Simulated assay, not measured.
Amino acid sequence: MIRETSRAIRMTLVLWLLTALIYPAFMLIIGQLVFPFPANGSLVPNLEGKIIGSALIGQSFTSEVYFHPRPSTVEYSQGKNAAPTGVSGASNFAPSNPKLVERIEAEIQRLEENDIQPTGDLIYTSGSSLDPHITIDAAIAQIERVATARNLSTQDIAPLIAKHTQGRFLGIFGEQGVNVLNLNRELDLLSLSRQQGQ
């Protein structure tokens, strides 16, 4: 009985050492050496070098000079320089729920008032409500508004959309999407370079 108990304790300690210390430390080292950007949260700085968010989590953009993300049923962040709240999830409204219909109709009206062709992802939220991407069609639908607001041509902005379009996962899963945070940061860089060049 004592021998079996001693063996069980030793096995528990060995497993604890392997799974709680060695394996996590190994993954941490590999992540920092091979994939440092995603391992540290894919954090994106603004032009002043301050972290403004993660390329993996949607951010709220409401200004006309920026591309807008998908609508969200949760708040993306608490303020201009705040990190995302970490709260995610859909509204869970059934398709027949009047509140869902009201939200969608209000979103369509808002888009049409801004001369933006409503697309599916500009009307409907994602499952997590934190999707950082929009479709290429949704980006193209907004390009005229952003170009006018920034006093740029659509030809200036179109290459940036292509640059920040991410392909399907492993080439077969999902759809292509434009990362809104990275695209808007690139727009700020373009506008700054144009101002400095004048």
Rank of each mutant, 00 (worst) to 15 (best):
I2M: 15
I9E: 03
T12D: 03
L13D: 00
A20D: 07
A20Q: 05
I22N: 05
P24V: 03
A25D: 07
M27D: 04
I30Q: 07
V34E: 04
F37N: 05
F37C: 02
G41D: 15
L43R: 12
I51V: 15
I52R: 10
G53L: 06
S54M: 05
S63K: 14
S63Y: 03
S63F: 04
E64C: 09
E64A: 13
Y66V: 00
P69Q: 09
P71C: 04
S72D: 07
S72E: 00
T73M: 04
T73G: 08
V74Y: 02
Y76Q: 10
S77Q: 08
Q78P: 02
P84C: 06
G86Q: 09
V87M: 12
S88R: 15
P95R: 06
S96R: 11
L100Y: 00
V101M: 13
R103F: 07
R103L: 15
I108H: 06
E113G: 00
N114S: 14
T119H: 11
G120M: 01
D121M: 12
L122D: 02
I123K: 14
Y124F: 14
T125K: 02
S129L: 08
L130E: 07
P132Q: 13
H133Q: 11
T135N: 01
D137N: 11
A141W: 06
Q142C: 01
Q142F: 07
E144H: 07
A147C: 11
A149N: 12
A149E: 03
A149L: 09
P159A: 07
I161D: 02
A162E: 14
A162D: 14
T165A: 07
Q166K: 10
R168Y: 02
F169I: 14
I172G: 07
Q176L: 06
Q176C: 00
V178Y: 04
V178D: 06
V178Q: 06
V180G: 02
V180I: 11
N182V: 04
N182W: 03
L190M: 06
S191H: 07
Q195S: 14
Q196N: 12
Q196C: 01
Q196E: 14
